[in-house]
Design a protein around this nucleic acid. Sequence first.
RNA 1: GCCCCGAUGGUGUAGUUGGCUAUCAUAUGGGACUGUCAAUCCCAUGACCCGGGUUCAAAUCCCGGUCGGGGCGCCA
Length: 575
Amino acid sequence: MLRSHNCGELRKTDIKKRVKLAGWVHSLRSFGKKAFIDLRDRHGITQAVLGEEFKAVYSELPRESVVLVEGAVVKRKQPNSAINTGEIEVIADKFIVLSKSKPLPLEIFNPDIKTTEEKRLEYRFLDLRRPEMQRAMEFRFGAETLIRQYMLLKDFVEIETPFMSRPTPEGARDFLVPSRSFKGKFWALPQSPQIYKQLLMVAGFDKYFQIVRCFRDEDLRADRQYEFTQIDIETSFSEESDIQELSEGLISLLYAQLLGIKLKRPFKQMSWEHAIDLYGSDKPDTRFGIELIELTDELRESGFKIIEKQIRADGIAKAILIPEELTRKETKAMEKIAKDYGFPGVAWTWIQKELKGGVAEQLEPIKTKLKKLGKGTLLILAGDWARVCEALGAMRLAAAEKLDLRKGLDVLWVTDFPLFKWSQEKQRLQSGHHPFTLPKPEKLSDLFENLSEQELLDIRSQAFDLVINGTEVGGGSMRITDKKLQERIFELLKIDRKTAKEKFGMLLKAFDYGVPPHGGIAFGFDRLLQVMLGKDSIRDVIAFPKNKVGRALMEDGPAKADQELLDELGIKTGD
RNA sequence: GCCCCGAUGGUGUAGUUGGCUAUCAUAUGGGACUGUCAAUCCCAUGACCCGGGUUCAAAUCCCGGUCGGGGCGCCA
C-alpha cells in the first residue's frame, strides 16, 4: 500500500510511529520556512508539517493536488479540537506530489459560497469530494447493507430480474432500446420488475426482494429521476397486514440504526378517502394541522350565492383556517393556487373577534359557527369534492411552508386506494395502482356486474402507500391471481384480449399452473434516503443524477450516436 | 405541453425609480512571514447569457431566444 493509515485515524497513541499518508491538499498554510498541509481523504484530515527543505515543492503546490507524506507522528503543541486527528501531526521527511490540480472551477469547501447545482452537477466528481456528499453515499450504502441483512434474517431471496424486457402498455412511458438482431423491434428498460416478481411467486420463491434500478421516461422533479432505485418486495401466502408489518420492521430498522430514531409501531393508518377529505392529498403531511373543514351544510342555504350554486350542483364546500392573518400578497398567492386548480378564485375572510375583510359580509349568517374554529384567515372553496380537497390541500402545504410548520417526523400508511381512476387524457379508466391490484373482497363479485363509471370509481382496492413527512416513499398491494378477474380488469381498462395476451400473456399463462395468493410492496429507495436525510432534492442522494430537464451535465448526455450504429439498428434520426 | 422564478469576474454575490469608470467575499498570479489550522498582511489580473428594440444614455426598461431551478400535466 502507498499509505499505512488513512487521514482520519491517527491518535495520541500513534505518537512516535512512522507513517505513510496519502490524500488531497485540503489547505496549505505556508510561512516562508515552513508549511502546514491539511491532508484530506474520505476519512478525515491530518496535518502534515513540511520543513524548509520542501519549500520548492510546497511554494507552488495548488490545493486539491494529490500528495504522499511520509514521516513521524508527533504530539501537537496546540491541539485542534475541530478534527479527530487534532492531537497529532506528521512531520514529513518524504513528500511526493503525485498529481497537481488545476485551479478549481467551483468552490467545494468554502462554507460561505454555495455553488449552484448546475456547476455541482457539471463537476460532480469534485462535488462528490464534499464531506456532505461522501456522508450521503456512505449512508446510502449503510441502508443497502441493512436492508439485505434484514431480508436475509426474514428468509428472503434477492433475485435479479432483466433490464431488457418487453415494452408495457400501461403505466409510465418506457425507455426503449432498439434490437439490432430483430430490426423494428425493441426492448424496454423496466419501469419496475412487477411481472417478473409475480412470476417468481408462481415459481415458488415465496419471499423475494431486490434492490433494483427502474426506469421511467417521464418529466423529472425534485424527487423524481429517469432512473431510480427501488426496494422491491413480493411475498406469497400473505395479506396486507403481513406486508405492512414486514415493511414497518424494515423502515424502523433503518431509522434506528442509521439515525438513532425509534419509530412508534404499528404505524398510523388512514384510508385514502379520509386523507383526501381531511388533508386534500393522498400523501398528507400530517406533521401539522390546518385540516380541511367541512362547510357544505352550513353554506347550503346561507345566502352565499356562488357557493350555494356549487352545492346545488352536487358539489361541496370546504375551507382551511390558516392561523395567521394573511397579507394581501399572501392571499393573492393562495388565490393563484385556486386558479391553478380551475377555480375562479377563493373566498376568504379574517376571523378575529368578528369576521373581517374579504367575504365577511356573505358569511355573516354562519359567523357564530365560524368563530368557534379559531382565529386566522379562512379560505373557502366550493365545487367538486376531489378538486376542492386537492386545491385546499395545496394551499394547506403552501401555508405550512410559509409558517415553517413542515418539520418533525411522521410516518403513516394510506390505505384503501381506489381501484380505478379516470384518465382525462385517455378518456377511459386507468388503474389506481397497477392492473394486477386486487380489489377489496366485499366488492369482488360486483365487478362483473354492469356498473356505472361512478360505481367503478367507488371500488376500493387492497393497495396502500407508505407516507413519510408528506412524501410517498412506497406503495404496495395484494395481486390478482384469478384469471377471470384479471381478464375482467383488462376489459374494464379497455385493454383488449389480443393486447392483454401479447403484453401480459406470460403472467396469465403462469397463473394456469398453480399460483399462490401473493402481494408485495416497492419502496422508492432514493426518495426514502432523501426524506431520512432531509435533503431538498433526490439528486443529493444519487452519485450521478440527471438534472431537472433530464440532461447529464457532466458527460453532456444524451448525445448523438454513431451513424454506423444507427444504420445497423435501422434507425433514421431525421437530422 | 403549460405556469412561476432566475442568469453580473473561475465560484458565490451587491447593484433593477435608467447616469457604472460595476460592490464585496473567495479563488487565481506575485510578494512578506518558522506554529498555522477557513492562517494573516500587501499588490495585481479578472464579469453584466445571446439577439433585437426604446433612450442622449441600458447590468437596470420592453420583445424574442438559450440555459438553469420549482411546480402543474405526466409519473399504472
